Simulated assay, not measured.
Amino acid sequence: MITNETSLQELLQKLTRLKKEIQKVIVGQDHIVEEILVSLLAGGHCLLEGVPGLAKTLLVRTMAQALHLSFRRVQFTPDLMPTDILGTEILEEDHATGKRFFKFNKGPLFANIILADEINRTPPKTQSALLEAMQEFEITYGGKTYPLDRPFFILATQNPIEQAGTYPLPEAQLDRFLLYVKIGYPTAEEETAILSNTTGNKKAVVEAVLGAAEIQQLQSLVRDVNISDELVQYVANVIRATRPDTTEVAYVKEWVRWGAGPRAGQALILTAKARALFKGRYSVTMDDIKAMAYPVLRHRILMNFKADAEGISSDNVTEKLLTTIRINPGLS
């Protein structure tokens, strides 16, 4: 438990150190690192998308090194089975009595941080095996329920779905990810620094900063961050405006097939609180809401064929909503 202001400040300082440790290895991508850490603080899972070679796996592995947490990496392939990630029962024998019995052998999901690498390279049957673990923080096998270690954080990477050999994630599983983060190409200066830093013998040493108990304290503290009634109403207005069946926003009716559900509003408020805490504040601002709206809504607003044909993405809709909808109800 956090007993005083000094302990709280020490925890927040460790958050700053955590980001700096990650930046020893990862050049640039500051907002990507921030969004991943916000997802961790908010207690949700994160989906990273980018073409191969943008250091998605390296970023996750570096973050794991900067935390006193158990880490497992699962390379998703077309032949991966659900038992390969959940675990399976094996037949063992008690040498004292000679009796045989089944023992559950835990899979790689029984760790604090899971890197689900190239999750859309594996068929839907294996993808869906993650659903219960992501939502309930437990898995069921052979009629028995096994709790997962806490904190439990899945960081999944995927290649753009236009690439060959990919299986698009179903909407139900996409919604389990708190944030959907897209990684783009580095700037010219960042790319030069990457080439300089990664082609020599010198390797950065990443030190572990935070442990499991401290992360759980921070996750609990996030929910105590203050948010005004006006901002809660604003979030509700934005979420409701994404639904083409009930909204009066013309471009949403024109481009959106399915809008965001209440879970999106919960995710937006929770991640805004986590971002405020990450910035050292104890109250949510409009900047927090607007910064987190994109990764929260990116996978929860489904575009129709007309939007796809015109090159309109969910980010475009989110941007228009954030600029047209105002805090005062009735003005949206």
Rank of each mutant, 00 (worst) to 15 (best):
D245E: 15
T157N: 01
T126F: 07
G143M: 05
A212I: 00
Y180E: 01
Q216M: 15
R257S: 13
Q233R: 09
Y251K: 03
T157D: 02
L195V: 12
T140N: 05
A188E: 15
V249K: 07
Q163M: 00
L148G: 01
V256S: 07
E254M: 12
V209H: 01
N226Q: 08
G200P: 09
D224F: 05
A212M: 00
W258L: 14
D224R: 15
Y146T: 12
I194Q: 04
W258G: 11
L210M: 10
Y167P: 05
R223T: 12
L131K: 09
A208P: 11
P186H: 06
V238H: 10
E207Q: 15
F177M: 03
F137Y: 10
T157F: 01
L131P: 14
N120Y: 00
K144G: 08
E254C: 08
E191Q: 15
V249D: 06
V232G: 02
S220K: 14
G261P: 09
L130T: 06
G142V: 07
T247L: 10
A193F: 03
R243D: 02
D224G: 03
E190L: 07
N197W: 01
N226C: 11
V225D: 02
Q219A: 11
V205G: 02
T199L: 14
K202R: 04
L174A: 04
E230Q: 13
R223Q: 15
N237V: 12
L174W: 02
W258A: 11
Y180D: 01
D224E: 14
Q233I: 04
A241S: 14
D149I: 08
A213F: 09
G261W: 07
A188W: 02
L210H: 14
D175P: 07
D175N: 10
R121W: 05
I215L: 14
L195G: 03
A156I: 03
V222A: 10
A260R: 09
E138I: 09
D175V: 08
Q219D: 11
Y234P: 01
A241N: 05
L174Q: 06
Y141C: 12
A213R: 15
Y141D: 12
T246E: 14
T126C: 05
G259L: 05
Q163I: 00
E136D: 13
I139E: 02
R240N: 11
E190R: 04
V235P: 06
E191S: 14
V222K: 14
A264C: 00
R263S: 06
R263W: 11
E214W: 06
A172M: 07
